[in-house]
Design a protein around this nucleic acid. Structure first.
Length: 722
DNA sequence: GACCTGCTGCGGGCTG
């Protein structure tokens, strides 16, 4: 372990010896050399529990100890997307830093004011912070940024994949640029991740001006052995003697998962509640202790902590039925098996979830995929007959095995987040000229797709007297307007993402969790929540509180949500599966039979040789063969000329009104480039937090940059016609 | 036909 080890500072070496490590992992040795010998930015890509945190911090801490800097402020900055992750990582770093006498400062909404006050008075050591809390520092302490970060040598961004092209990611990258501008020098950037689809794009996100000089340190292969099973289940058409698909899946989970730690990803909060309730019943029927618990974002912090603690406790076997809450790197230890009910929306999520299993040496990673498909009747729709859910599951597993996952989408404008950052820059500096703001955010920062014209439009929109977010002083300086002042003053400003209004659910004086306000509830109604059954007692509309007490029966509540974007490559693979003949070894007999039925029906519709199948006088099926973004663009175009359109994975079902235009003729006319008003029939475009302050034309521009692909419409129509 | 994430400063009342 010499070489890399020798480059570390004495206290760090001592810590490694105390831990009893026999050697450094390969990524750690490589990362130590890169950090100690160069000034390069870097990405460390390795699986969960692959030692990424140490790979970054052992050499960074060594540098802080051996080459004290002249400046003032925190020596190192760590950005984490979750409070729980920051708490975990602060504990791990404190262990290393005790020897080195370097302070470790966790900083997020739950950290006490006294720790923050002390750190502000004497900023040094390692600051671990969320993007939102960093935002708050810029707004509340705008003039102190240089003092707080003057000495900062590096910023470590954990779970880099979560902050690539998301609203939060753009916010973070904007803050990092503003930080570098405030201290007038670049800060080394280190990204950590287990799930990056496209390394070149990830590099460009980490350092847009010098992507090619970002060093990549990737753990080689060495992935755990993967055990995989896909089981098919038929739902609907049950009689009282045959169990429903839900019961059959729950029984299978009960039989195979009991006695160990597992994660069951059910895909939606409502399904989490349904499966957790069934599994609890099975335990009660068999007089066995409870070991299946629900876990999702609407459940109280108390309950979630309880489930997370149980997962960590080796003495208590625990299966969490969950949503993506348990997808990221918070420490719950290794699990025996990951189950996935229904197809996931991205290969990246599937890969991240699977990374939770098989992390111990010699243990295989195990994925149990359950596909639920409808029992066919003469009335069944083409979607059911084509078994699109099952086909997508197979495509996702295929791509996972090939090591592919979705890259970020780099073309989005992110105008809502731009509005947020304009307000933030003005607040930080107490006023700024339009050109300073433009240079900071659009030339140097992440909003590079925003032209000066679009920027000017945004300023006009948010400066309109009726909007009142900003105004201009006599000297031309941009200032916060009355509405802008109010927004920025309130703590809810710091987050860039939208959150829905919710009721609090209370039983016996204790919070169970929250429910979206669009659930229609009245006293006496029955409810399944937090894995148990309740009856509604009181509803307090003004306080947004619902009081419940235990009951014997219940129905699962409704949680909202928007459909996810499926990538072109996934849909492409789905068509290859429908047109292929391979019978994957990991599929059970029922799912194989469904696959053969789907292939038979696909052939019957003739999609091997054409893309339009006429179902009836008014109705046709179109095979678009592309992902959600391009397929929704065609759907919108058809709606704008009077069709009613149903959208599915890679397919559209178009139905004409009373007048029956010839679909082929309509498509040909669109392909000829006749200008179309895509938005004539588009619903609400204001989907993000600061959208309500933008003009309709800016909202359309924003939508075109992220959710639609009008530029691809012509070539798509050409392909479909042939 | 979906999921997730986050949050400051101040003032009032109490304790040592």
């Amino acid at each position: 372990m010499s070489g890399a080890f020798d480059k570390l500072a004495r206290p760090v070496q001592k810590w490694i010896r105390q831990k009893g490590w026999r050697e450094l992992r390969d990524i750690q040795a490589r990362s130590i050399r890169t950090i100690c010998e160069t000034n390069a930015d870097l990405i460390v890509a390795a699986s969960t529990a692959g030692g990424k945190t140490e790979a970054a911090f052992l050499p960074l801490i060594s540098q802080v100890l051996e080459e004290p800097s002249g400046g003032t402020g925190f020596d190192l900055l760590y950005i984490g997307p979750l409070k729980a992750l920051i708490t975990d990582q602060a504990m791990r770093l404190e262990d290393i830093c005790q020897e080195a006498e370097l302070p470790v400062v966790p900083w997020h909404g739950d950290v006490s004011q006294s720790i923050k006050t002390r750190a502000l008075k004497s900023p040094k050591g390692i600051l671990l912070i969320t993007p939102e809390s960093l935002e708050a520092l810029f707004i509340r302490r705008g003039l102190e940024i240089a003092r707080l970060f003057g000495a900062t040598r590096a910023v470590v961004i954990d779970e880099l994949h979560t902050v690539l092209d998301s609203e939060r990611g753009v916010q973070l990258r904007s803050l990092l640029t503003r930080l570098e501008l405030a201290i007038k020098r670049p800060i080394r950037r280190v990204g950590l991740s287990a799930t990056l689809g496209d390394m070149d794009l990830a590099k460009a996100y980490l350092r847009p001006d010098a992507a090619s000089s970002v060093q990549l340190i990737e753990a080689d292969g060495g992935e755990a052995e993967l055990r995989l099973q896909l089981r098919g289940y038929l739902s609907g058409g049950e009689d009282e003697y045959s169990p429903s698909a839900t019961d059959a899946i729950a029984a299978h989970l009960f039989k195979h998962l009991r006695g160990s730690d597992n994660l069951v990803f059910a895909g939606a909060r409502q399904r989490v509640e349904i499966y957790a309730d069934r599994l609890r019943e099975f335990c009660e029927q068999e007089h066995l202790p409870q070991e299946f618990y629900p876990h999702h974002a609407s459940l109280s912090r108390d309950h979630r902590d309880f489930v997370e603690r149980r997962l960590k406790d080796p003495a208590k076997p625990t299966t969490a039925v969950c949503t993506s809450t348990l997808e990221l790197g918070i420490d719950i230890g290794d699990v025996t098996c990951v189950a996935q009910i229904g197809g996931p929306f991205s290969v990246a999520a599937l890969r991240q979830r699977l990374g939770r299993s098989g992390r111990r040496e010699g243990q295989p990673a195990t994925l149990r995929q359950y596909a639920v498909e409808a029992e066919l009747t003469p009335e069944s729709s083409f979607v059911d007959r084509l078994r699109l859910g099952l086909i997508r599951s197979i495509a996702m597993i295929d791509l996972l095995l090939e090591g592919w996952c979705e890259p970020p989408k780099p073309q989005a404008l992110h105008l809502s987040t731009l509005v947020h950052q304009i307000l933030s820059v003005i607040a930080q500096r107490g006023g700024a000229s339009a050109s300073v703001v433009y240079n900071m955010l659009c030339r140097e920062g992440p909003f590079r797709k925003v032209t000066t014209d679009v920027f000017a439009d945004v300023l006009r929109s948010i400066g309109h007297p009726e909007t009142g977010l900003i105004e201009q002083s006599g000297s031309g300086l941009l200032l916060l307007g009355p509405t802008g002042e109010k927004l920025v003053e309130h703590y809810s400003f710091y987050a860039v993402f939208q959150t829905p209004e919710e009721f609090r659910l209370v039983a016996d004086g204790r919070d169970l969790g929250t429910l979206p306000i669009d659930n229609v509830l009245a006293p006496g109604m029955l409810l399944i929540f937090s894995g148990r059954r309740w009856v509604v007692q009181e509803i307090h509309d003004r306080e947004k509180v619902i009081v419940v007490k235990p009951a014997k029966a219940g129905v699962p509540p409704v949680f909202g949500g928007d459909p996810g974007d499926i990538h072109d490559k996934v849909i492409d693979r789905m068509f290859a599966i429908l047109e292929g003949s391979a019978l994957p070894a990991y599929m059970d007999a029922v799912s194989l039979k469904m696959l053969e039925e789907a292939r038979g029906y696909y052939d019957q519709l003739g999609f091997r040789t054409k893309n339009i199948h006429v179902l009836g006088e008014h109705t046709s099926i179109i095979a678009t063969r592309v992902g959600t973004v391009k397929t929704s663009t065609l759907a919108l175009a058809l709606r704008s000329v009077g069709f009613s359109v149903e959208q599915h994975d890679g397919f559209l079902m178009a139905e004409a009104g009373d007048e029956i235009p010839d679909l082929r003729a309509v498509l040909a006319e669109m392909a000829s480039g006749e200008p179309l008003d895509l938005f004539g029939d588009a619903g609400n475009l204001a989907t993000e937090k600061f959208h309500p302050y933008l003009s309709v034309s800016l909202l359309q521009l924003d939508a075109v940059s992220s959710k639609l692909a009008p530029d691809h419409l012509c070539s798509m129509l050409d392909r479909i016609a042939n």
